[in-house]
Design a protein around this nucleic acid. Structure first.
Lengths: 147, 147
DNA sequence: TATTGTTATACTCTATAACTATA
DNA sequence: TATAGTTATAGAGTATAACAATA
């Protein structure tokens, strides 16, 4: 066993380092947790969505979304409302303050991503992307569909 | 912002799923934590090493190693001794029980890795490997050498 | 003074499940 | 009965720093 060459270990080490490089921006600078960041990022795309869809989009479970949204609501960044079509659902949407925060945060986060991706040639980025897709597909089969 | 295409998010999701697929083996079946597994895996290669080197090898900090080794020692899997050359160091080495556990665990863990890597053609594995190397190198520069 | 390793502490995150309300 | 979401709680992991022993 060579730990340094063991793919799951290597993947974990790189992913953690990359995550920290991004968290430097949203955590230290905007006080967001990872889950809050993910919910906001999902909302940045759609503007509004159901809690359940936020969970799917952001690869979080319903409890993580519930808590992240509660914190985001307390901070005035997101509003929650009922879905008239099915009153079990909650519709989440960015507040003006949430939108303003994202307008400031997203360029910073994307700049960090770009700094990291600068390590890879375009073909290498595509190869990484494809490999991640295939691995994710595979791992969900190996573990029986769990996250 | 498309979260689904944001590399750090994708990397985190895949790495977490892959980590769980491996942890299924060492945690549910052998009762090891991730840090304990990493220390054992590092020792599997070298047989014995200093705590400090285990930390470097396994990308853990000294506190994580100290606690993992304490647990492994309680479980009779690893022994700690002083380094006569520098009595601040601790020399870690696998006990016979630790070796026996690894002899059973390693093939299972490697089989899981192989199941996952089966998703990738040989050239794709090399491409993934190269991309991870380059990203890790880059991220350590971006964050100033921190883990 | 610097380094190795241990211990303490508070904090955060995770896992599980119970619970409410709606369907 | 099943689903969306909330709340509770215990356990695990993380971050920081103080500390002891040695160099």
């Amino acid at each position: 066993m060579k730990l340094q060459q063991f793919m799951p270990y290597r993947l974990a080490v790189v992913a953690e380092a990359v995550s920290r490089a991004i968290a430097d921006v949203y955590r230290e600078r905007f006080g967001l947790s990872r889950d809050e960041w993910r919910v906001l990022a999902a909302l940045a795309e759609a503007g509004e969505m159901k809690s359940r869809d936020a969970a799917l989009q952001a690869t979080l479970d319903k409890m993580q979304v519930s808590r992240a949204v509660a914190a985001l609501e307390r901070a005035g960044l997101v509003a929650r409302s009922e879905d008239p079509a099915d009153r079990r659902n909650r519709i989440l949407r960015l507040s003006p303050a949430g939108r303003a925060l994202l307008d400031e945060l997203l360029p910073m986060v994307e700049a960090r991503e770009a700094e990291l991706l600068a390590a890879l040639a375009p073909a290498e980025r595509l190869a990484l992307d494809a490999a991640l897709d295939r691995l994710l597909d595979r791992v969900s089969r190996v573990r029986g569909g769990l996250s």
